[in-house]
Design a protein around this nucleic acid. Sequence first.
RNA 1: GCGCCCUUCGUCUAUCGGUUAGGACGGCAGCCUUUCACGUUGCAAAGACGGGUUCGAUUCCCGUAGGGCGCGCCA
Length: 474
Amino acid sequence: MSSSVITRFAPSPTGFLHIGGGRTALFNWAYAKKTQGKMLLRIEDTDRERSTPEAVSAILDGLTWLGLDWDGEAVSQYGRASRHREVAEILLARGLAYRCYCTPEELRQMREKAEMEKRPVRYDGAWRDRDPAQAPQGVKPTIRFKAPQDGETVIEDRVMGRVVFQNKDLDDLIILRSDGNPTYNLSVVVDDHDMGVTHVIRGVDHLTNAARQTQIYKAMGWSVPDMAHIPLIHGPDGAKLSKRHGALGVEAYRAMGYLPEAMRNYLARLGWSHGDDEIFSTEQMIEWFDLDGIGKSPSRFDFVKLENLNGHYMRHTDDEQLVRALLAFLPHVAGGPEMLARIDAPMRAKLKRAMPGLKERAKTLIDLMKSSQFLFAQRPLALDDKARQIIADGGVAALEALLPVLSQADWNAHSLEAAVKAHAEATGAKLGKLAQPLRAVLTGTNTSPGIFDVLDVLGRDESLSRIEDGLKLS
RNA sequence: GCGCCCUUCGUCUAUCGGUUAGGACGGCAGCCUUUCACGUUGCAAAGACGGGUUCGAUUCCCGUAGGGCGCGCCA
């Protein structure tokens, strides 16, 4: 009994994997995992004009980065064209399809006329019942599906519910182009059937196609898979996703410093819910995932929330893993390779030791990259405006007093803190008045991890030298 | 224009006829504090509108408005 679930992700390789596609893939993947079924990957490359191998690898990379895998080899839809043609011929032979000799130009005029007269834009079925003997010379025909003209086509959608289309609103679509290549709606049906797909999970933009595809399934006598049409993701302003918003390839999210596990969590929560649960591991998501939990309304992409979630994942990632994530991330971001070049073994060790303080303050890997700069900085440090202000604001005196205190202390965060606090008490100085000047000369900025951790990680020699550099500034 | 779909705090959402309409992000205020964060406490914030059905509607039905998707020899 092989009643197990088979889903598929079927992107067309005309560009990168955008965020909506990523979520569709995630849902297909999660559902397959949840049911211990399979998720297949099929590249819908029947449009030879627009499909590119670069796009195929971009999509594969994107999926891989997101942590989504698929069963078996990615299937090229174009590679199955002869089977699609075969099915078109079967339909033709059974009288369920016919040759249409309209030229593209004629069709264009038909559409324009309909639009001008404010009539529905549909193929008029000119060749549906016409004698093929009347075929004009020199026109290569297309093959059109002979769609039912009466009654209705019903889709029992797992997300949208029961959706009814009147057959009179659906015209005879072309299933085989005049050049002999199949079109999308035919290919999808044939492939999903042949590949044993049991559940089709895709964007609502395919809802109308679902009706036409259902008609083809029925014409072939094939059983129709379960369908789940998920709502689209809009930009933050509610409008369509644009380049400025979320219509970025998933690799752009990688370059923005988001962790794949955070992306998975965020994307899952966008349109799908399991009660009030907000943060869950991928394992938990798989366990909980179900088509019933998918909402019907479109959602907006919210970078702020993504950032918050990402920050949560960063804080909860262990130091060694985060160092690795950062190192793996650097090649993908501007300035990253240069930074990577400076990270030798001792520097990597420092980075890891500083990580607990660093990750507490970072929402993205970009933040981490920036906030760890002080570790790599070459003496004498360039101070930013705020750091200069602190030095100018009585910072020099504080540093002068602190220098002997520090140089006599044991060099670890605990002892250094004790020494500085004792000094503060003895002199009546506020700790902040001592910590900020130290932060300024040690990091060149006014924000950093806890100052005693900074001293510790930097080490005695480097720290004292940076302080002395600072004293020379005045 | 035609067809289909959608509509709860600013955003993501819970609710599957009876709740003070809950949670999360963000916002505001406080606490914590060596900066920034983190953490923590509290506050403000929603059922598009109009009709039904019902003892009772956010929830079911109809309409209106708004939004989205589709209408290719693209996928």
